[in-house]
Design a protein around this nucleic acid. Structure first.
Length: 257
DNA sequence: ATGCCGTGGAAACCACGA
């Protein structure tokens, strides 16, 4: 079972790239973030045509998340992260696919920090920790994936010293990610590649992709019941070099399920 | 050190992203 995550940065503007990537790599399940489309503007027909069912939670202009499945039925569990009824951002959607719980998330950026946006990021992180603990307690295969907007360690940043005050790399942010992982989750990429420089995002400008000035911010966290099935993981880095690409590249794992 | 680029939506610029 191949599961992928891709921050598309606009699902309609990105549609040709998304469809080409789906057709070339054919993941079984795909989590999308930053749809940047209201609920009724999701390109469902084109996704279906490509062989995928989909559930999604859209939002005008910003955010928006979706789960696609090629081979198995999608049973939606929720489309809101619990813990704050006031939070109207579409940043979380969760479903069971092939007996695996798939949580698709778009964690807030949090800049500028400090400030209200950073406070929102940390509060969202706390809610995610609480919900993740609930998921772990079920002792079933769970895959929590998406754009975490966190570089967990210095190995995940091309120039760590330049990012120390940034919301994606501040000590509070890294600490929150570590607390989450320490509940018992496995960071799939780091489990298989503990020492390698692996990025999932490159800025649009300053030739960041050409210079490999990247960040690793899109992650797969696996519950123990999922982690024991982990076979492979990687980044479809070449997609970032395609015409009209997102600033993120797709990331994927393969489970023996 | 910096939104220098890119997207969407409103309106011919602005918010936002990381």
């Amino acid at each position: 079972m191949k599961i992928a995550t891709y921050n598309v940065n606009g699902v309609n503007g990105r549609l040709p790239v998304l469809l080409r990537w789906l057709n070339e790599t054919k993941p079984d399940v795909v989590c999308l973030q930053e749809l940047k489309a209201p609920q009724e503007k999701f390109p469902e027909a084109a996704i279906n045509e490509a062989g995928y069912q989909a559930i999604w939670h859209g939002q005008k202009s910003w955010n928006g998340v979706a789960i696609l499945s090629r081979t198995h039925e999608i049973k939606e569990l929720r489309r809101v992260l619990p813990g704050d009824p006031e939070d109207a951002n579409s940043r979380y959607i969760e479903a069971i696919v092939n007996n695996v719980v798939i949580g698709c998330l778009y964690l807030p950026n949090g800049n500028p920090a400090p400030g209200a946006k950073f406070d929102y990021k940390l509060a969202w992180f706390k809610r995610l920790q609480q919900h993740a603990a609930t998921l772990l307690a079920h002792k079933v295969p769970v895959v929590l994936t998406g754009d975490y907007n966190v570089m967990p360690t210095e190995l995940d940043v091309y120039k760590p010293e330049r990012w120390v005050d940034d919301a994606l790399f501040r000590p509070e942010t890294r600490q929150a990610f570590k607390q989450l992982v320490d509940q018992g989750w496995t960071d799939a990429i780091r489990k298989l590649y503990p020492k390698e420089t692996i990025y999932t995002f490159w800025d649009y400008f300053r030739n960041a992709y050409g210079r490999n000035a990247g960040l690793r911010i899109d992650h797969f966290l696996l519950s123990p019941q999922a982690a024991k099935h982990l076979q492979a993981a990687g980044v479809d880095k070449e997609v970032r070099g395609w015409e009209k690409s997102s600033d993120h590249a797709p990331v994927w794992i393969e489970l023996s399920i």
